[in-house]
Design a protein around this nucleic acid. Sequence first.
DNA 1: ATACAACCTAGAGTTAACTCTAAGTCAAGA
DNA 2: TCTTGACTTAGAGTTAACTCTAGGTTGTAT
Lengths: 136, 136
Amino acid sequence: MQKSIGDVSKEIGVSIHTLRYYEKIGLLPHITKDEGGRRRYEPKDIDRVRFIKRAKRMKFSLSEIHQLIRIETAELIDKPQAQKLISEKLQEVEQGLIDLMNLKKDLSGMLNACFKSGDNHDCPIIESIKDNKETP
Amino acid sequence: MQKSIGDVSKEIGVSIHTLRYYEKIGLLPHITKDEGGRRRYEPKDIDRVRFIKRAKRMKFSLSEIHQLIRIETAELIDKPQAQKLISEKLQEVEQGLIDLMNLKKDLSGMLNACFKSGDNHDCPIIESIKDNKETP
DNA sequence: ATACAACCTAGAGTTAACTCTAAGTCAAGA
DNA sequence: TCTTGACTTAGAGTTAACTCTAGGTTGTAT
């Protein structure tokens, strides 16, 4: 028997409200209902939810996630358009990696500089971070 | 002469509304005003704005940015607390790096698999992404 | 002196993404 | 059968982060 909304909610850690919301805005397909009118989630629906959750942790917006899903579900069969979307996304991701690596350097530098041996230096976080490469 | 709100807005690419908003919520200090009551931004204020913009691009929320700023401005002189905050932030950043590296692999894999030589395969984005390491 | 842009405040409006509520239905156990 | 908990819909409420508006003031160029 397929899983109920409560099962999916617990399994993945997304509230039942949010699951219905995702369905309403089209991020999930219309979930089939049993005789009593309750949602029954198929494995592929659950994969979709898992994917959404993961993409959200990467700070993609719901509309970006929607786009990614459309690529796969072939609602976007337009090859060039899909390719363009993916490469753009890839570039964003690469910029994000650079940003995070810089921040990581800054933060671990602060940990070393400010907290090494209980001694009171200044912790120039804004100074140290302000002059990294800028991309709008 | 110090810079006006319009100058700062153009220089950094943040609207004047947003600049006043950041000041209102305490993300920027009270900006000194000239005789006519207009804001005059000092270099350190502008550095702060630049920092906020950069942190936002890394998807930090305003309240997280606030915390980072408090570490520096020594409103948070409590050494252990600041250290805890920075290490937590560092861990988040490291997890973010892992996530983004996985996504980069997935996306460039898709580009290769789906668009290599004009041939129509399937593009299993959700499938390929769903089983990566999970962290809440 | 007058026009005009840039600024001021206070507060209303917007968007994304939930989150909750009310009022009712369904299913399983005592 | 009765109760209890999980579910249903429609719609209202919330939070973050802006974004805009109204109505007024200031500074500069002609």
